[in-house]
Amino acid sequence: MTPDIPFIIIGAVLVALFGIVIGLFLMGFDRIVAARMQARIGPPITQPFTDIRKLFAKENVVPENAIPWMFNLAPVLALASAIVILLYLPIGGFTPILSEGGDLILVMYLLTVPALALVAGGFASGSPYATVGAQREMVTMIAYEFPLAIVIIAIAWKLAAAGIALPFTLASIQANPIWGLVGPLGTIGLLILLVVLLIVTPAELSRIPFDTPEAETELAGGILVEYSGKNLALFSLTQGVKTVAMASLVVALFFPYSLAAFIGLAGISGAVIDILFFIALITLVAFVSVSVVRVSMARFRINQVVSVYWVYLAIAGLTGLLLVMADQIIGVI
């Protein structure tokens, strides 16, 4: 099946719209539940939409020390790459639009692109705060990449061991929910891997406790400190789309279920149900790994971020991987 070009374009536009709207919705949802957990009322759910509209109405200020072209290019690049990630991820039971060309490894690499754009923007701002923020963002990126890779490899390995062709493509993961392939030991292993991925998510999204690159109290917004107006709006949208992407990745890897198939609905109503079910799933993932985590602890120092990922999460991830492998071996015997 080779999808024709018009299909891809329409699909891409739809996915971009979906990513942006749902991303902003997730941000609004996060603000409300975080507020409720802190015994506050919080803003209305439409607040992120209002904020973005207002930011787009404002002027871009380029600081004197900045490198203008890089400074202005970074936000566009960040948003575009974040949307591209979505094109490779299955959304609500649909096969990813660009499923042909890419697989999990590609997604893993694509996930770093918005962060790299942010780093470039930070260095280009020419402010000491942004520079420190950009350095920290790079360190954070290197830190969480390792546990993320472990999770992805563990799942692909399991699929390969179960005799499924093309284990790295999201389509095969989608078609074979991972929980069905493992025994009790493997289930424990997978649960550990799920937790690891849920803890990688806040770092990917620069949220507390891993928001060291932005660190409001010491760096005053760090990497984003010089951004304003439309550029800042683009970065906010990126943040929303990235939230959708990370949550979709978690859902795609661990919960690739379809409610419509389960209750036996097909056609348009089935698709609608599936999309709604998918939104509910990613909202749940965002709630657990973004909202709850960010309100319940203090910000880490950058060296603590590294040790959390390289030591604790790497060990946890490897344990999970070993458990899944052991399970496979026991299963074979």
Binding site: A39, R40, S296
Partner: peptide
């Protein structure tokens, strides 16, 4: 140890402490 978590979940299901003066939003 994260002793704040139970407290937060409790607050999630109780009424916010904010006095909504002069209006909620």
């Amino acid at each position: 140890r994260l002793p704040m978590v139970p407290e937060l979940l409790k607050q999630l299901f109780s009424r916010p402490a904010t006095n909504a003066f002069p209006s909620r939003h």
